[in-house]
Design a protein around this nucleic acid. Structure first.
Length: 483
DNA sequence: ATGTTC
């Protein structure tokens, strides 16, 4: 299959893979992209995966893919699919192994010039205080009972235990806690992996970044989000560590068995799924919610250590330094939401796998401070180019079940990056851009090299051009901690 | 993403 030929042009930002391209498709697949991005998108199996997702039982609307689409497990990364809340199927491959991998944006009252002379000390403090790297362990020793509370209460547990402030919860998607998260649906093995790792960044594409607000595009939204030009911000990208990974692994095995036992017809075994209303489907959703809560507690603890790091370096309190959360978004999760789409409306389960919720103004899920503005959408690029702050727009509600992109997206596979890039080149590039880098592993530097990623501007231009989001601000890195 | 093939 020549996938570039399979794309039918809808407009400058939308390409349709029509129902029938893959035999079992129940609906079309629509990829948000510019024409120039199509060869890259068609260079791996991602378009086939977007088409395969259209075979998911109970899917409503189109199978969607964001412009940062690339090859994933079952679903493409960048994939969005909504299924009927009563009759639809839930698929762990539509959420991903790193359940509630997500991004948190924190603002400060500090300006670039306040931080530049202390930047090395700040990066040392952040590297010391926030555990990072493959197999990294948290600083808090948990027992089984505490871990169960983390799984059930998420960020609420963290704040209740001294990691952050009550108002942080309002600035977290879902309040940092999925309802219905029952720890008894999480295996002992997942719990065992989760206990030592809570409060750690991890490895891979996870990072902690200190940025400066470089350009503001929407003064009104930026003001509502507490952002202004020249301000120093911190971006945290991490997930549910080995705990979420084990939950995904456990339930993929169980759902594989469900699919075989019940003769569910799927184009790819990696799309293993079960009715949301079935015992196994409901148990997975509950366990996934536990994984999501773990990730929120994780980012909340890291937020606390970020505040402590600034307090130490700037000899002032986090309150008086204005270290406040802007927002925390999940980008690997399934959520029960009410939506309208072409041809219907109602309660659905939205799978977002490498895609961010991007609710337009007016949605009741948004905190009051953002209700009239829209949801902050935080879109990190590669480690050298920084992060975009976008805001959810009406187009997302009508076209993409309130969703947008989650990052630049990989251009090269990890293997390909290791083959063609050297750690020294990455370090030099960061130095040339005057970005202070703290990293424990040359291997992860190479896998996450800037040249292994797509161009963030191109990705953002598509979601803005398609009306899914609006541009608010661009953040440029001055310091990066890589796992 | 990940105790990178329990």
């Amino acid at each position: 299959m020549k996938w570039e030929k399979a794309f039918e042009r809808v407009d400058d930002h939308r390409w349709r893979i029509p129902k029938g391209t893959v035999e079992c498709m129940r609906t079309d697949a629509v990829v948000f992209a510019s024409e120039g991005m199509l060869p890259s998108i068609a260079s791996d199996n991602a378009p086939l995966q977007a088409a395969n997702v259209a075979c998911l039982p109970g899917i409503v609307g189109d199978s969607l893919a964001m412009p940062d689409i690339h090859w994933g497990y079952g679903f493409p990364i960048g994939g969005v699919a909504a299924v009927d809340a009563d009759h639809g199927y839930i698929s762990p491959g539509g959420i991903g192994f790193d359940i509630n991998c997500g991004v948190r944006l924190i603002r400060t009252d500090l300006r670039r010039e306040d931080v530049s002379k202390h930047l090395d000390a700040l990066m040392d403090a952040l590297y010391l205080n926030v555990p990072s790297g493959l197999g990294s362990k948290g600083l808090k020793k948990l027992n089984d009972e505490e871990l169960s509370k983390v799984l059930e209460y998420g960020s609420e547990w963290a704040v209740r235990n001294g990691y952050g402030w009550d108002r942080d919860l309002e600035r977290t998607e879902e309040g940092g806690r999925m309802e219905g998260a029952d720890p008894t649906h999480v295996s002992d093995r997942a719990k065992k992996r989760g206990i030592p790792q809570l409060g750690s960044l991890g490895s891979g594409n996870h990072f902690l970044e200190v940025d400066v607000v470089d350009e503001v595009f929407d003064e009104g939204a930026a003001k509502a989000f507490g952002l202004s030009e020249g301000m120093v911000t911190v971006t945290v990208h991490c997930g549910s560590r080995g705990c979420g990974h084990q939950i995904a692994t456990d339930y993929l095995a169980d759902m594989g068995k469900y699919v075989r036992d019940n003769d569910v017809r799927l184009p790819d075994p990696q799309l293993a799924c079960a009715p949301l209303s079935s015992d196994i489907g409901a148990r997975y959703f509950s366990a996934m919610s536990c994984g999501a809560n773990y990730a929120w507690a994780n980012r909340q603890m890291i937020t606390h250590w970020v505040r402590e790091s600034f307090e130490k370096v700037f000899s002032d309190s986090a309150e008086s330094l204005g270290i406040e959360m802007v927002y925390d978004v999940a980008h690997n999760i399934a959520k029960k939401e009410r939506h309208a789409w072409e041809g219907g409306s109602g309660d659905v389960l939205v799978h977002r796998k490498g895609a961010t919720r991007a609710f337009a103004p007016g949605r009741p899920e948004l905190p009051m401070a953002y209700r009239d503005v829209g949801q902050p959408v935080i879109v990190p690029g590669d480690m050298s180019t920084g992060t975009y702050v976008l805001v959810g727009a009406e187009g997302a509600m009508t076209q993409s079940f309130g969703s947008s992109c989650h990052g630049a997206g990989r251009e090269m596979s990890r293997k390909q990056a290791v083959r063609t890039i050297r750690a020294g080149d990455v370090k030099r590039e960061m130095r040339d851009r005057s970005i202070v880098l703290r990293s424990g592993s040359d291997a992860s530097l190479v896998e996450e090299a800037p040249s292994a990623y797509k161009d963030l501007e191109t990705v953002v231009d598509v979601v803005v051009g398609a009306g899914l989001t609006g541009k608010v601000a661009r953040l440029t890195p001055i310091g990066v901690v890589k796992g």
